[in-house]
Design a protein around this nucleic acid. Structure first.
Lengths: 202, 202
DNA sequence: CAAACAAATGAACGATGTTCAATTAAAAAT
DNA sequence: ATTTTTAATTGAACATCGTTCATTTGTTTG
């Protein structure tokens, strides 16, 4: 079969990412198959390579969608939470965990897909990935007010993300098996609040 | 070919794990191949399944070896470090990062290999994996002295490990790209020390 | 209506994990 | 010593994967 009028270039891209995203959510990264994703979309393998150039490109597009949903989930969780004390940051950490738990396969796939430094990420995808850091940056900055400068804040924001990420990753991989179900999130939040308190005065 | 006297059952197991370990270090988890590991050991694919039952079993054995080396590296780093203030815990965090950096592929493979809950880990391998937690537990307990009880210490130890893990994982995956090379380790240590200080009085 | 173009295909290739009947060496029994 | 039994090792077979690319086939242009 040759050119079809079923879908425009944009529609086709959207369709493939959508099916790929669903397949990744269903099977997880290790069992994901580009062939199967194309099959479900009603196209054949080659189309994936026509549209995304490579499997890496396809996975980047799929994972960027997850990043988008994730950022959206965090914003939704923050809606209407008053900026009293650490309330918004607590909501942020909890929403982080909630999203990862509700989207295990998709969330883990973000970190399962190791992107070679040689490959460059499309600008739009890069933006979707940085949106998350942006949210945390905004909220942490708001909490500190004028009590901190950029040189300190930027590494701290990364560190807080890494802290929560570590708890979430080990939790989903089963390393918290013997402990209370909500312990990982509670502990992550405790670490974040301790770090905030310790860095207030500097 | 049938039964050979080249290697005893123990020797064969050791040989395969050794070659597999080397191959994993060389190629990384995504490019690892049981076929190739067997080939390098001078055996054929089937032998892997005879000895380890499954690919998962093989990978568990290989990763357990990495856990062993890792624990050993931490103990070596702690040797001769006096228990003044947080010196030993600082050495621990630094050694954690140093091992991961020096064994990127092997370290990452530990977390790349997702083990199904259905599969049970051999007792010996389970012990190798818990040795690491044991070291941290021992050192944190020593630092606190009598100022903390088990109910608080156990979750805290897990949390400290998760904190350092998170920094290390994001570091090696390139998420700290724009920051100073030693920033991730420095930040991880800062978070650990803040957590220790905050939990001293409770 | 013909020529040019571009999208979609799917066979081909090399490689993977996994299984298992066949083979072969060692051990046990005669 | 010879035969029988046992167990370790093989590798072909199968389904599947990622990747490439000559071929086909719709669409658009001239």
């Amino acid at each position: 079969m040759g050119r079809r009028s079923d879908h425009s270039a944009k529609e086709l891209r959207e369709l493939l990412v959508s099916e790929g995203h669903a397949l990744l959510a269903e099977r997880g990264f290790a069992q994901f198959s580009a062939r199967e994703a194309a099959r479900r979309a009603g196209y054949s393998v080659g189309t994936i390579y026509n549209v995304f150039g490579s499997l890496d490109g396809f996975l980047i597009a799929i994972n960027s969608r997850t990043f988008g949903h994730w950022a959206q989930a965090l914003e939704t969780a923050l809606e209407g939470v008053a900026a009293v004390d650490t309330a918004r940051l607590e909501a942020l950490v909890m929403a982080y965990f909630a999203f990862a738990e509700a989207n295990r396969n998709l969330w883990m796939a973000i970190y399962d897909h190791r992107i070679d430094r040689a490959i460059d990420i499309p600008a739009q995808d890069g933006a979707a990935r940085e949106a998350l850091t942006g949210i945390v940056d905004r909220e942490v900055r708001a909490w500190f007010g004028a009590d901190i400068d950029d040189a300190q804040l930027r590494p701290l924001v990364r560190s807080l993300i890494a802290t929560v990420h570590g708890h979430c990753a080990l939790w989903l991989s089963g390393s918290y098996a013997l402990l209370n179900e909500h312990e990982p999130a509670r502990q992550a939040l405790a670490r974040v609040l301790e770090a905030l308190a310790a860095n207030r005065m500097h």
